[in-house]
Amino acid sequence: MPGLTFERRLMFSYCVDPDTLGTFRWFSCYLTTGVHWSFYLSFLKVLLLLAVTAPVALSFGFAGAMAARSHFPPLSWLGKGYIAIVRGVPDIAFFLFFVIALDQGFEWIRHKVLCPDWSEPIRQGNDFLVCQSAKLPLGTAPEWVHETYGFILAVITFSIVFGAFAANVLFGGMRAVPHAQLETAEAYGMTRRETFWRILVPQMWVYALPGLSNLWMVLIKATPLLFLLGIEDIVYWARELGGTKTSRFTEYPHGDWRMWYFLFLLIFYLGMTRVSEIGLEKLMRRLSHGQATSGGELLRKETTA
């Protein structure tokens, strides 16, 4: 049997010869192979991506919305341009080309700073060439550094894309706050800055939350785009592990099991959406508290009745 020359780390001692095992034991070995651990690890990767991307995208969105409603025209154009351009470009195009461009951009800057004496052109035909020390990560870096770098690029890309949508939602949320509230603040002698931070921002969330919760749901489902960025996510592994395996290349041959793996992913995604719905519902209740909206009014009646 070629291909089975690698050193095996077995979860259970009886996994030495899987062909002879009963169904239950066979599966206990099959589901604990090295590739399956990579599969389980990819779930953590996806959760980590969500946990990091959501706040970063929200801050991008907040900055974008603030810029868009600025009274200083160039800043306002910048904010509105960001929202319009990123929302208009198809995600898949963004994920395919932007990441390579971003990576090359970083390397180009490092190249200019670190290798000022370099005389050869950076672009030679199709090739993009920077000096060795400008490579990001360095060619000598271990594989996990490369993977972490890829992950960071993914977070930046996801944040820029979802930040643009969030900016639009927050921009709408800011405009939905009743104007009378702002005028009252002004009448009390607050500056524009104070009105913004003390009156507008605390009240806008309740208007923005339905839109933001939509974005969160879309973000959860957009994580398979990670594979376009070279990160092995849960969908990649489900496809890889579920595919037909012949006995020449594995000790655990099986037919096309992709359906079962994707069914498992379906359950995972449904579970994620359910948990998110419950969390967002709670958040909405909290934000509505004391607000001059129908939701806030409902809460007031509940507590006084």
């Binding site: 070629p2 291909g3 089975l4 690698f6 050193e7 095996r8 780390r9 192979t33 090295g34 590739v35 651990w37 990579s38 060795q132 020390s133 360095l138 060619g139 000598t140 890889e240 595919g243 012949t246 020449r248 290349f249 594995t250 000790e251 655990y252």
Partner: peptide, 24 residues
Amino acid sequence: MADTVRMGTEGAYPPYNFINDAGE
């Protein structure tokens, strides 16, 4: 630094290249 060569492969085309049970 100059001698580390990164070899790119697909990992989905046995017997040319594939991912074994250990994930390599």
